[in-house]
Design a protein around this nucleic acid. Structure first.
Lengths: 144, 144
DNA sequence: TTGCGTGCAAAGGTTTTGCATGGCA
DNA sequence: TGCCATGCAAAACCTTTGCACGCAA
């Protein structure tokens, strides 16, 4: 096991992601953001830390088919996140931790019916969340 | 609407993907493959066509968190695929069309419990399929 | 002091773009 | 012929890597 140091860069990145836990960012986003705040953190350092934090389970990492870059997002407790799936709203980016009985049933069925052993760390259910469906400021009555 | 020409490049790309519909390829893969077969197709043309074909719904496009590139794969009939989810084996790339009752139940539960309206076109369940779990030539008894 | 993390700089890989030419209808 | 697609070349973009130095423990 490796010893992990508590460094300035690591702290700054986590702090930023924590305080914006409802959004997802590219490494580039974070780099720009941190350098606006006068912290002279290198681009490579951002990448290295994001990678690290993701491996440790502190962040979700995920690629959209639309964008060209990898997105990162903080998501709370990190112990159990490797064991359950996650869903994400395609509009606001909010992440849902799927820790529910019916999800386990689904996983079991996938196993028995299709023979597939779901890898929660690689799977992201994507859809539109309730808030974005209702109170959304856009798309109220478009293309009707 | 734009008129679409039937060109050599377009045909070659589709033909290749169709005859390997159980695999996924990066644009680079396809470029190399086509040029082995003496067709002088440019890299940019490959990108442009893949993009086109994806927009038309003839291909699945999808990014793995591990690899750095976008993967494309042919997938047969395109009429109903927007209505159900898909799963993909993380090893062999095989795609499963999830048209089953329990999948609908899962979808319904996601709706009622989390308020999420799943978008099948953006969701990909990732895991290891039965064949890759058993008969796999690698990883027989590693890290035990 | 030890060795991990950072900054710096450079390189690698993927994808996009402009422009003139070639090919389909 | 008219317009779209292609080839070519260059650039943009994202990400990784090597190395020496700084900093946390």
């Amino acid at each position: 096991m490796r010893n992990e140091y508590k460094t300035k860069a690591r702290g700054a990145i986590m702090e930023y992601l924590k305080s914006h836990s409802d959004q997802r960012f590219t490494a580039g986003d974070i780099y720009k953001q941190l350098n606006q705040n006068e912290s002279g953190i290198d681009r490579a350092t951002v990448y290295r830390n994001l990678d690290r934090l993701w491996e440790e389970g502190a962040l979700v990492r995920f690629r959209e088919p639309d964008s060209n870059a990898t997105l990162y997002q903080y998501f709370g407790e990190k112990d159990t996140c490797n064991r359950h799936m996650h869903a994400q709203c395609s509009e606001c980016g909010k992440i849902f931790h799927l820790e529910n009985e019916f999800v386990e049933e689904f996983t079991d069925h996938m196993q028995s019916v299709y023979g597939i052993d779901i890898d929660p760390s690689k799977t992201m259910i994507v859809g539109k969340c309730g808030e974005c469906k209702n109170g959304d400021t856009e798309k109220n009555d478009s293309e009707s």
